[in-house]
Design a protein around this nucleic acid. Structure first.
Lengths: 149, 149
DNA sequence: TTCAATATTTGAATTTTATTCAGATAGGCA
DNA sequence: TGCCTATCTGAATAAAATTCAAATATTGAA
């Protein structure tokens, strides 16, 4: 047994997929070469970043989903880009945004369970520049990445 | 000019993509038929929901991104599933979750600009069962859908 | 432990699909 | 109008996915 599954999941989270030109051509009733031309143009413009899979996250041990708000210290808050860039690199962070107002950033985080989330939270709190955080636990994920679950 | 672009974007938001089996096989150094078998299994298990594109949303007129918190009235709050299900269907809603605590749900919304967001907000507020909302505007999107921007 | 049922892996053959390319058409602009 | 560029498209080619049958590995019950 080669344990291919986790390796597939890792690759599919960010890419290793491609458009189905012939299906699209059938759907919108245009020649496949026309579809091909238009897709390449979108890719060259940079409008399309990548093609990836969307998972039923409960089935890949990432069913625990939290919105994590972070407030930076006055010093770190002057240059939030570096910190948010580092936190965004965490594998379990689905999205990361800088905000205006009481909280400096919001992370959407997926872990297997509460324990794994707590480990992640501790590693974030241990960093320089974090003043405080608050966590909103998702009770039910109804839509994600534009896909209804 | 056939204006293919918006139709492609609509299809790519939820699907019309497929895995690149040969690229994956090369990457993880296994035969492509083995990769094929394992992917089909993930699909049959329901672990993979779909394959889709991730956009540079600024380049497809969806650069304005807001986290919208919603509190339901006492009456509607007893059965939040119906309302969140309806709101999740909005094309401009990227994600929708039910929460515990002060707010009953959080939507991640993408519009072209503030004006379009305000129109969407008005149409949400006009619904039965919405008690109050608050909006957190993303100043900078660093990561989305597990993809660094 | 044995062994039979089931799951996984794999190469070869086939089918499907993407890609290339050259010519046609349409659109933008001076 | 006429020229330049962008878009569209069919035919030919190249690349990739899929099927299938056989080999190997794993699981679970006796």
């Amino acid at each position: 047994m080669k344990n291919i599954k986790p390796r597939l999941i890792r690759l599919f989270k960010e890419g290793y997929c491609t458009p189905q030109i012939s299906k699209i051509a059938k759907e919108i009733k245009e020649p496949s070469t026309t579809i091909h031309y238009n897709i390449k143009k979108l890719e060259e413009e940079g409008a399309i970043r990548t093609y990836k899979a969307v998972f039923d996250y409960k089935k890949i041990d990432e069913g625990f989903c939290v919105y994590l708000f972070i407030k930076l210290t006055a010093k770190a808050g002057a240059y939030p880009d570096r910190i948010v860039g580092e936190l965004a690199k965490y594998e379990k962070v689905e999205s990361a945004d800088l905000l205006a107002g009481e909280w400096d950033m919001i992370l959407k985080v997926r872990t297997e369970d509460q324990d794994e989330f707590y480990d992640l939270l501790k590693s974030i709190l241990a960093r320089e520049g974090i003043e405080k955080t608050t966590s909103l636990i998702s009770l039910r994920q109804v839509k994600t990445e534009f896909v209804l679950l």
